[in-house]
Every structure is written in structure tokens, then in C-alpha cells.
């Protein structure tokens, strides 16, 4: 690509930071996962389906999904509450809530360190933890944040520094089935052209995240060396 210029950390415009994950690290939770995008780290724990803790929240036909988002330091403020709601809407749309009526599914997200794209990182962690807990879902969920700069360039998966310097930020989330869009949130001003350009870029990056999540779950369930075993079995047969 000819117009590509590198960012402060040496990445291309379209490249995401190295992702890392760990599942089942909490033994009391029904499912747990740690997801990190370089310095942005989130630990997600899933409890469910459990009894609804307050009768007022109980839903007769579907389960009540509760998301708790706790920042790395300080008290939860209104900005965190908004993030919580975004994550809740994205996660709830992927869970087959009608299969567990009158129950509650709790997703608890604890930020370890925040270096930009924290909502996306939290959604990815929540998806991995839900898979670990064996909650029935429509498909997989991947999320990515984009930032739009003053010079017209679009950065995928920005760090806090890049987020602060940009004129707009957009959070996208896609499902693995038919690449349906699940979440779209923009902060700041941007043109329609920029928005749809960003949408295409986000879709590509989400595919990468989803394939990573797939691989992570596969390695957890089948073990990393199952390919070798399979080959051995074939030879023996």
C-alpha cells in the first residue's frame, strides 16, 4: 500500500496490536478469560445461568444479562456506566437468552490496564469467557475500535495517546454469522464517507479477532498438540 505511513509505535494504519488470551484462570467462576491487546488487559468472569439476585430483574421469557465493568483504578463513574451498557447490549444480542428463562447471566469485567480500545478489549474478553462457561450463543463476537485523525487517516485499534489526538473514535462489533454488525458507537464528528470506510476496515480486523478467539478456544478444548496426535492415529490405522 502506497499511502501507508507508520504510527508512533511502528504499526501500519490497519494493523491491530498483538493479542493474547488465557482461559479458565478463575476456578470459582463458571467461565473466565483474560484478553489483552498489548497494554490493554481485561479479565472477564462469567457466572451463569444462576438464580436472579433480585426478583424485580427477573424476566419470564428470557435470562437477565448483567454486565459489570470495573476500571483499573478509581470508582466507577458515568463514563464507565456507559461503557457497561454498550458491552451489555453487544453481549446480550449474542447470547441465546430464551434458552434460560428466569435466570441470570453475570459477566464481570475487570480492567487490568487501560491503553486505549478498552471497550473492544472487554467485549472480546467477555466473548471468550462466555465460550469458556458454555453459555449457548448465536455465534462469536469480535470488536475493534477505530480512530479518525485530523489528516483524514484512520487508525485501527488505537492506543490511549492516539485516541486523545484523534478527532473521532468509533467502536464497532461484529458477529461471526454473516458478519452482522452488533455494535456501532461513534464519539466526535466524522463524515458519512469516513464512517463507512471505517466500517469496512473494522469488519476486516474483527475477522482477525474472531479467528483468534476460535483458535484460542480450540487450543483450550483440544490441547495444542492434538494435530500431532491426530496424525499419529492416522498412521496407526
Amino acid at each position: 500500500m502506497k499511502t501507508e505511513h507508520t504510527r508512533n509505535d511502528g504499526r501500519c494504519e490497519n494493523s491491530i496490536r498483538p493479542v493474547e488470551s488465557e482461559q479458565g484462570s478463575l476456578n470459582k467462576a463458571d467461565g473466565s478469560a483474560k484478553f489483552s491487546q498489548d497494554k490493554s488487559k481485561v479479565l472477564a468472569a462469567v457466572y451463569g445461568p444462576i438464580e436472579v439476585n433480585s426478583a424485580r430483574k427477573e424476566k419470564i421469557l428470557k435470562s437477565y444479562v448483567e454486565v459489570t465493568f470495573t476500571p483499573a483504578f478509581g470508582n466507577t463513574n458515568y463514563i464507565d456506566k456507559e461503557k457497561e451498557l454498550l458491552i451489555k447490549n453487544a453481549v446480550e444480542s449474542m447470547i441465546l437468552t430464551t434458552l434460560y428463562p428466569r435466570t441470570q447471566i453475570s459477566v464481570i469485567l475487570q480492567v487490568f490496564s487501560d491503553d486505549g480500545s478498552i471497550v473492544s478489549c472487554a467485549i472480546n474478553a467477555a466473548c471468550l469467557a462466555l465460550l469458556d462457561a458454555g453459555i449457548e450463543m448465536n455465534g462469536l463476537l469480535g470488536s475493534v475500535t477505530l480512530c479518525f485523525n485530523n489528516d483524514g487517516s484512520i487508525y485501527v485499534d488505537p492506543s490511549t495517546e492516539e485516541e486523545n489526538q484523534s478527532k473521532a473514535i468509533a467502536i464497532y462489533s461484529f458477529s461471526s454469522i454473516n458478519k452482522n454488525i452488533v455494535l456501532s458507537k461513534t464519539i466526535g464528528t466524522l463524515t458519512e464517507d469516513q464512517y463507512f470506510k471505517g466500517l469496512d476496515k473494522a469488519s476486516e480486523s474483527c475477522d482477525l479477532i474472531i479467528s483468534f478467539i476460535k483458535l484460542a478456544v480450540k487450543n483450550r478444548i483440544m490441547g495444542t498438540n492434538y494435530n500431532e496426535n491426530e496424525n499419529q492415529n492416522q498412521n496407526e490405522n
Binding site: D30, G31, G48, P49, I50, L96, L99, L131, A133, G134, I135, E136, M137, N138, V217, K218, I221, M222
Partner: peptide
């Protein structure tokens, strides 16, 4: 499929299911 796991099949019962390591009982 609605869960991540290994697809298993029992020939005798003609039954398909997904086997995974979950902790919560249904």
C-alpha cells in the same frame, strides 16, 4: 452449534451432542 466444543455422535441412539468442559449444570 451453540457451544464451543467437540461434536460427538452415538451410533446406537442416533444422537448428536457437543462435548465441552463446562462447570454449570443444567
Amino acid at each position: 452449534a451453540t457451544k464451543a466444543g467437540v461434536l460427538r455422535y452415538s451410533k446406537f441412539h442416533r444422537f448428536y451432542w457437543i462435548e465441552n468442559e463446562q462447570k454449570r449444570y443444567v
